[in-house]
Design a protein around this nucleic acid. Structure first.
Lengths: 246, 246
DNA sequence: CGGTCCCTTGACAGCCGTCAACTACCGTGG
DNA sequence: CCACGGTAGTTGACGGCTGTCAAGGGACCG
């Protein structure tokens, strides 16, 4: 199977063979297993480099003093955890594994060499970061304006499209290893209400979700119901002007 | 008065005299007036460069098809509108003026020259972008977990600290040229409930807000009541290792 | 077989939205 | 000078979306 980071970055620009092999070298060693429900990196840490998710699901989250937890985003294979953290002195949020996760650490020096010798890769890494932030903006819209059914429908659309972009779907079906409590912590809803909302979406024929397997039989219908506009995912090879010419 | 962008970037790192004068040159010409309640840049635009707010208040926002509007963040003097937009093909949100605003446009070539010749400035510009995104993450927490009083209290703390960092406060007082509808669109609340919440905060002695003038007599008290932790604003000269040595 | 995690269900309460009307303020123009 | 209109703020009544609490069921596992 191909390197998930390569697959991810090629959403942005076509990479050359040298770009790809440099990425393979950079991500090929030091893979690390992280158990489900443990932290990959914690608020206050000062990472020296960045972590890359190779397999499994993780999430960014913040915890308030009184225990309330807000999930800020989900990290899928090929996603970088903290590419930007070296400029900000310390992490202002944590990243935790939701399933067993394989991560590899890209030291700062490796990143610097990579971006210096392969400018296309450097561009693509920033693109990856900026798309993550575009997703954050869309979550603000969800949390501020959409009701429970729209929020969850919107999130499921996002996850299906993101998984599809890294080859982790089977047609209109994909694995969603999230508990209803996770969905609630992400969308600002109680577990009970997530449950009721999922039943509503099932009853409306918009989704099936059972045993961690999601199917969206009519994606357009769910997108309409959730006011979902996919442009914020920037999935259509934005950086064609940087394409390797081969 | 000093260049607000210089003032802003010096939150991150001490700039050299050359850095500052290069910034002054880059931002010194082509200032443009934008009327209140009009757009500076619109979703779908493909900006060639970036806009800088010199004076006045603006906001990022997204509008859903059915008219609901979500404000994503407030732009104060010294803030960049779209430093990252050139990598993403088009704007996925709009930026509108809330008051009369002065903006100046930094063309891409100017930015490239600036960052090539003044690496400290390049670092600082990315820092500015990353702090904006850290603020977005904190808003997700507000919208997902905090109730109305906490949300508004938290936002007012944020605005006071950000204004203070660019010298736009008078002690514990500052100007907040936002309508209650604006506050509602930002915090996902109806205008009526914003009004009731402000009255609650006033009644609790946590704020006074009248005629666009905000006073927070006891900032610590409001921060406690709002579960406000200022680290996400990254206001304490993170980039000291890049300081100009002069 | 007991325990744990996750999902599900029902009853009830409360935060917050909607609707509508009213006030205050301000600039404009007759 | 005052009528007028528009914007922003305020208030009350009412309803609904969503949270909380509590209990029960099913799947998996040691």
């Amino acid at each position: 199977m191909s390197n998930p980071l390569v697959r991810r970055l090629e959403q942005f620009t076509r990479l050359s063979a040298e770009d790809r092999s440099a990425l393979d070298r950079a991500t090929g060693n030091g893979a690390r297993q992280v158990a489900a429900r443990t932290d990959i990196i914690r608020e206050g840490d000062r990472p020296n480099g960045t972590n890359l998710v190779l397999s499994g699901w993780a999430c960014r989250y913040k915890q308030l003093e009184d225990g309330r937890r807000q999930i800020l985003g989900f990290l899928l294979p090929g996603d970088l955890c903290d590419y930007q953290a070296s400029l900000l002195r310390e992490m202002d949020h944590s990243i935790g594994a939701l399933t067993p996760v394989t991560v590899t650490s890209l030291p700062r020096t490796t990143l610097d060499d990579l971006t210096a010798c392969h400018p296309r890769v450097g561009q693509a890494l920033w693109w990856e970061t900026l798309v993550a932030h575009a997703i954050h903006r869309e979550w603000i819209v969800s949390l501020g304006q959409r009701d429970a059914a729209e929020r969850i429908g919107h999130l499921l659309c996002e996850l299906l499209l993101r998984l599809r972009s890294v080859g982790l779907t089977r047609g209109d079906t994909c694995d969603i290893p999230l508990t209803q409590a996770d969905l609630g912590d992400a969308m600002g809803l109680s577990t009970v209400h997530v449950n009721r909302t999922l039943q509503y979406l099932r009853g409306a024929g918009l989704i099936t979700l059972k045993g961690g397997v999601l199917t969206i039989p009519d994606l357009c219908a769910l997108m309409d119901a959730s006011l979902f506009n996919p442009t914020y995912l920037h999935l259509h090879r934005e950086g064609a002007q940087f394409d390797a010419n081969e």
